[in-house]
Amino acid sequence: MSKSTGTVLVTGGTTGLGYECALSIAQQCPHYQILIASRSNKDNAAVSINQITDHSNVEYLKLDLSSLAKVRSFAAEYAEKDYPPIKALVLNAGLQIHELDYTEDNIESTFAINHVGHALLFYLMSPYLAEEARIVITASGTHDEAQKTGLPKAIYKSAEELAHPTEETEKYAGTQRYATSKLCNIMWTYALQRRLERSPDKRWTANAFDPGLMPGTGLARAWPAILRFIWHHIMPRMIWLLRILISPNIYSPKESGVSLARLAVGDDVKGVSGKYYEGQKQIPSSKDSEVVGKQEDLWDWTVQRVAKDEKERRQFESI
């Protein structure tokens, strides 16, 4: 194979949606180096994709988004490699936790993994982005009460309250914290887009993506055993029925993976930025997600929390 002309980095790329997205990109773009980053790789995902495509351009890298120190270690190790510029950064990994839990950084785990770790990863990887690059963030329709997904309403008062729940908010269900973290994904995308508009020298785009409900993915790995069984073994066989009974926004990981890959490398969405997609369709996100004050609170808190010093804070803010 000829030398790679660009890099695509997909977090959570070893299973489910991320795996299918990476596979689709590998099939379309054999000239790209594709890195699938996740905290585990028990099924040898990169080997699997390379065997399917008969290429050798997919590589696994270990990444633990629950630890800011480990995200920094990932970035430091990346800097030592000679990968070509990043053409697409797909911030896809996510987790839904039923019980209230905190990371080693004393940040509520759902918020930490679904938002904070990804934001730090973006800031640290930004020097390696190509002049023309795409940032795609996997969000969820659960952020929008109007979509009637069955999850509790996403509630955003401040980033600080999400990171360190109060006596009242620590009683919220894990599904509520998940929905709110997905709201944060979209708000952060819009805040990033505003900054990209101020930097015409950067030809970067940023979009958020709702893959729909995807039975069988790793989202449920922290659920109770009986719910994991239903999720992995019963619901994937009933997608056609679930679309009729519940919502048309229900897909297999492969279907949604193709849609996510489109935002990362598809020619028909080149140059599109600051948008929210449900599968293949561009749709409005929730009214709460469009509140600029909330977007800026999230952005400012995140930069302050993850920057190691004043120099780095200024660097992150200048993106």
Results as ranks from 00 to 15, higher is better:
residue 105 D to R: 06
residue 49 I to A: 09
residue 62 K to M: 10
residue 86 I to G: 03
residue 104 E to I: 12
residue 60 Y to T: 10
residue 108 E to S: 08
residue 54 D to V: 10
residue 128 Y to P: 02
residue 164 H to L: 00
residue 146 A to C: 00
residue 111 F to C: 15
residue 115 H to C: 01
residue 73 S to P: 05
residue 112 A to C: 10
residue 47 V to E: 13
residue 91 L to I: 09
residue 83 Y to L: 11
residue 155 I to F: 05
residue 119 A to K: 07
residue 66 S to L: 12
residue 148 K to A: 13
residue 143 H to D: 06
residue 106 N to R: 12
residue 111 F to H: 15
residue 105 D to N: 10
residue 111 F to P: 14
residue 127 P to R: 02
residue 75 A to V: 13
residue 132 E to L: 05
residue 160 E to L: 06
residue 138 T to E: 02
residue 138 T to H: 04
residue 48 S to R: 11
residue 116 V to N: 01
residue 59 E to F: 13
residue 67 S to F: 09
residue 97 I to G: 00
residue 123 Y to A: 03
residue 92 N to F: 01
residue 156 Y to S: 08
residue 63 L to C: 11
residue 134 R to Q: 03
residue 69 A to T: 15
residue 147 Q to C: 04
residue 69 A to D: 15
residue 75 A to S: 14
residue 105 D to M: 06
residue 129 L to I: 05
residue 83 Y to V: 07
residue 98 H to M: 05
residue 144 D to P: 04
residue 115 H to F: 09
residue 103 T to Q: 06
residue 142 T to M: 02
residue 87 K to W: 04
residue 100 L to C: 13
residue 125 M to Y: 00
residue 147 Q to Y: 06
residue 97 I to S: 06
residue 105 D to K: 04
residue 112 A to W: 00
residue 59 E to A: 12
residue 109 S to T: 15
residue 169 T to Q: 11
residue 58 V to C: 11
residue 110 T to Y: 07
residue 141 G to F: 06
residue 155 I to P: 11
residue 156 Y to E: 07
residue 53 T to F: 08
residue 125 M to W: 07
residue 121 L to H: 11
residue 148 K to I: 06
residue 63 L to D: 10
residue 112 A to F: 03
residue 92 N to H: 04
residue 77 E to W: 08
residue 96 Q to D: 10
residue 85 P to A: 01
residue 51 Q to N: 14
residue 76 A to R: 13
residue 124 L to Y: 01
residue 154 A to T: 03
residue 159 A to Y: 06
residue 61 L to R: 15
residue 158 S to R: 00
residue 95 L to F: 11
residue 139 A to P: 00
residue 160 E to I: 09
residue 54 D to G: 14
residue 138 T to N: 00
residue 88 A to K: 10
residue 95 L to A: 12
residue 87 K to E: 08
residue 88 A to S: 13
residue 65 L to P: 14
residue 134 R to M: 07
residue 169 T to H: 15
residue 111 F to T: 15
residue 152 P to T: 09
residue 91 L to V: 07
residue 74 F to Y: 14
residue 143 H to E: 09
residue 122 F to C: 08
residue 67 S to G: 13
residue 140 S to I: 05
residue 144 D to F: 01
